[in-house]
Amino acid sequence: MGEAAWRWRTIEHTGDLAIEVEAPSLGQLFLAGAHGLVGVLLGEEAGPEKPERPKATVWRELALEGPDREVLLVDWLRELLYIQMSEDLLLAEAEIGELAETRLVARAGFAPPPPGKGVERELKAVTYHDLEVSWRGNSWYARIVFDI
């Protein structure tokens, strides 16, 4: 799959901030959601436009379990948000090793925010509200609401 195979964009939400994500596979959907999270933190409204992110300097193995893939997606993004908030590291790249209905194993690479482009926005959390992960005939779709 090429660079443009997945995309994310912010959508209108009065109180908080939400994104929609589309990707050809569930694994790419999780990656796209992660890039959407990073994009929102950097003040972007859609991606990938020119997703020039610094190369990963720190790698982590993440293994998550949840009751279903929706909760798993939220938990995945929560882990990434926690790492950003506690260590000021943003996801740069990731390899999804295993992704089943209730389990995700990934190797995630992080880097500090790009030079001259710090984190613009504080996200309090990734919520379960209005959450959706679905197959829409020809691509995977997710809607995620962040508390801001």
Binding site: G15, D16, H129, D130
Partner: peptide
């Protein structure tokens, strides 16, 4: 009141 998550704000 406005749209929150779970409870309305």
């Amino acid at each position: 009141i406005h749209w929150g998550y779970g409870f309305p704000i």
